[in-house]
Design a protein around this nucleic acid. Sequence first.
DNA 1: AAACCGCACAACCGCTATAAG
DNA 2: CCTTATAGCGGTTGTGCGGTT
Length: 229
Amino acid sequence: METALQQSAATAGGGMRPAGAATTVKKARQELELEQERELRFPQAAAAADQGGLDEELRRGPWTVDEDLTLINYIADHGEGRWNALARAAGLKRTGKSCRLRWLNYLRPDVKRGDFTADEQLLILDLHSRWGNRWSKIAAHLPGRTDNEIKNYWRTRVQKHAKQLNCDVNSKRFKDAMRFLWMPRLAERAATAADQDLTGWVQGFSDDGILSGSSSDSLWSLDDIWRMQ
DNA sequence: AAACCGCACAACCGCTATAAG
DNA sequence: CCTTATAGCGGTTGTGCGGTT
């Protein structure tokens, strides 16, 4: 899920560099006006945040704009690393692990958001065919993309395809479809339309007439799926 | 209009590897 | 070496949202 508030919190961190945090922090502060609304959305998180007396109490769940700002500001001043100590020093009632994850996957200045381009999708398919679920290794080749994001992409989009084709992602049938149909189409798209969506991808796949007969039903479903991307 | 359902994605968990003392 | 802390990885879960019934 991604609420508008989380979106804005992410944007707040998004363009920022440690050296020039001021503008972004200012922008992020404006988001605080929305915090009240957020508390309505996440009453549990808000309630936990209000437990000022219980210092040992660790917060979990969605990050508030306030927490994001605290983390951003602290890292801008002191740098990242030693996350448990950082969490304590910054006054965040979060585990170091949670802070690290939030920073790496969301607040880091160079984290790229939004849909994957055809190029990126092609690269993911390619690298996954070589390395399997080595998400961080794959992410290392996609600047600004996190392993979490790629993993989610794979699970929600690619695995769904396999399901639609009634086969396993690891099956030969699926791997062949990927290698000989989808990837060439993606490459084509990447070359021509740069980074547009994949509409038509599956249509072309249909035109090839390779997955005929019992698969035709699945094709229409796939088309639906890809149109949504 | 309401109930339901599936999707997408942020966040958490358990585990392993590595570093530091 | 052994222990403890930290970083990182991959799998899984929780939940808001939008679409459908």
